[in-house]
Design a binder for these strands. Sequence first.
DNA 1: GCCCAGGAGTAGACATCGTCTACGCCCGCC
DNA 2: GGCGGGCGTAGACGATGTCTACTCCTGGGC
Lengths: 194, 194
Amino acid sequence: MDADEQGLRTRLVAAGADLVLSEGQSAVSLREIARRAGVSHGAPRRYFPTHVDLLSAIAREGFADLTARVEQTMRDVDADPRTRLTALARTYLDFAAAHRGMFELMFRHDLLDSGRLRLRETSLPLFAVLADLVAQVRRPTDAPATVLAGALWANLHGIAQLWAWGSLPLATGATDDDALLHAALDAHLGPRPT
Amino acid sequence: MDADEQGLRTRLVAAGADLVLSEGQSAVSLREIARRAGVSHGAPRRYFPTHVDLLSAIAREGFADLTARVEQTMRDVDADPRTRLTALARTYLDFAAAHRGMFELMFRHDLLDSGRLRLRETSLPLFAVLADLVAQVRRPTDAPATVLAGALWANLHGIAQLWAWGSLPLATGATDDDALLHAALDAHLGPRPT
DNA sequence: GCCCAGGAGTAGACATCGTCTACGCCCGCC
DNA sequence: GGCGGGCGTAGACGATGTCTACTCCTGGGC
């Protein structure tokens, strides 16, 4: 099962993922992906009717990658839910910073709206992991579990984007995002138990 | 000072803003903007060396619009800082929902990174308004003021994007974003005083 | 009154892109 | 052994961003 032996569909998605990771979103053209995969510019069309379909498949790969990283993190840290949430948040932020182009692609609204490959639903397993942990640490006076989890996800997502985009470093003058991460966790989940 | 009498530079930015508001980001091509402004496709080049420069000017217009809306909101609501923060947050979310294409353009990382027109700095006045209010309601045990404000901004931004993009409605099953907004405010600023 | 220098916009060329269509090649099956 | 269909090629088309050569017009100096 060498990489060269895989189907063209798989190779196209892999080439696109490589490309967006290394060169950014603007480099992910149909024709460049086809070139990297060693096929003509018309070849992708047999598997992906439009460019958007191919990009959606690449974005799915991104969600799969992020989900896998989170699950690996969940295997690596101990059982305390709060510790696990902190590690999950750290993984999310690190992913966004290290794979900015892919992170951007994953949340392109035109891809999400296109409904190709049910891209929007692809984030649900990830949210489920977060929601499960949130439910374990939720205090009675907190918002309902799904609201609390949604608000926390949004906070992580906002920090990830605004930080990676450079807006938050500029506005806060901070040099790393750790303070923001812990501020968000403390705000939504209560102060970290010592 | 009729609109037709303004300089081409102004007309191009206005045409681009109209376009991104009504047709979305993919419609904001150099040539289409030039067509709407009634000039040839080469004309914008005299004022904006590249497409990115023109898009950055349009995004600046977006930040100016959002800032103006927030300031208008600040004039409309009473003096209680917490009430003002709630109104600010509501304005931010409404703007993102009502002007999705512009909101998206304003936070395109390639525009922010290009440094054209110091686009990234354009969000600072807005952040200053938020930070000022946050400082007024900050409790002694909270995170430092800039961190608290940054975390809250990120939360608002995350809710705005994930909600407008459809991810949060899908994940939480909610039909409006009010619960998320108040959950975020309560989390960062403490429960709303009755 | 003339000239002319330079700003402002036009128009065409070029490479690239996404999409569409017509065409070949090759492998397996009867 | 022939043939049909999946798989990929190749060329065309319109659109885009950028570059360059050009035209037009206007205003100031003599």
